[in-house]
Design a protein around this nucleic acid. Structure first.
Lengths: 143, 143
DNA sequence: GCGGATTCATTAGCTTGCTAATGAAATTTG
DNA sequence: CAAATTTCATTAGCAAGCTAATGAATCCGC
């Protein structure tokens, strides 16, 4: 029901929101949200990374990351360990409880579902186009 | 710097955020945010629409819309008018102040900027692919 | 090796999404 | 026509994005 001509931007916004909602539903059985599940898998692939590094990988800011990490820690799924070399940093790890969760294959699953019924060459074109759009948006940001 | 293979979902999330940030910067000179500017143009194209209708057009929920509309009303850019036929509804209009703002051409401008340097046929493919992805995400939501 | 600059995590506070619940008005049904 | 249902806007409260500001630790330049 969005506004008629349905511009690219509208499509993007709507898709991202639907996507989020769909997978939110999917991971809620584990007591997770979309953002927290994304962080969980990123920690799993990069154990020992600092908070700043994780934030950069996820493309979010460190205060946002802190809040997500606090939540995972409260749920007993991740932990901060102080490192001796640098008193400012923590190294972040999954707990054993988190390792059992089948959520770790999350990203690949999301992608596979999303790509269903789409020709590989169309996917390739779309990837390229999205990358160019990201550059366009980025350029605009500085101007 | 996101996680290596840079999946589709990551691209989408990052693009939407960059896009938002870029245009946030663009409209802040008018005291607007991205979401509020989007609402403003939607009101402009559909004057007299109810809040529920506007929310549907924007793909957001009515409480979210209410908050945005309150803000525009506080800024003197939009107004609610009770309608005689239905005591529950308001008809929403732009004020004269809003009509002067050059923000009304906003959507087209966003789209044009985003599409720079992309071949028309690639854009077409991308539109189709995004639509299919939206269906995939939607389907998953119900399952 | 000391002092200024940078980096890291944190706090505080804003915006904008969401869902659930509510009251009032309109509509549908029996 | 009265009662039940639905619709509309609202309130309340949560999640997750952001920026700005802070304190502590590290690093660099001289």
């Amino acid at each position: 029901m969005p506004d008629r001509p349905f511009t690219l931007v509208e499509s993007l916004i709507e898709l991202t929101r639907t996507l989020r909602a769909a997978f939110e539903q999917r991971v809620e059985q584990y007591g997770l949200t979309f953002a927290r599940a994304r962080l969980l898998t990123t920690i799993g692939r990069n154990e020992g990374a600092s908070q700043a590094q994780l934030a950069a990988m996820l493309g979010i800011e460190t205060p946002t990351l802190k809040r997500l990490l606090d939540a995972l820690e409260d749920q007993g799924l991740a932990e901060r360990r102080p490192i001796p070399e640098d008193g400012r940093k923590y190294a972040v790890y999954l707990t054993e409880a988190a390792r059992i969760e089948p959520v770790l294959g999350f990203r690949a699953e999301v992608d596979a579902t999303l790509a269903q019924g789409i020709a590989p060459e169309d996917l390739a074109v779309t990837r390229r186009t999205l990358a160019q759009m990201a550059r366009n948006a980025e350029r605009l940001r500085q101007a």
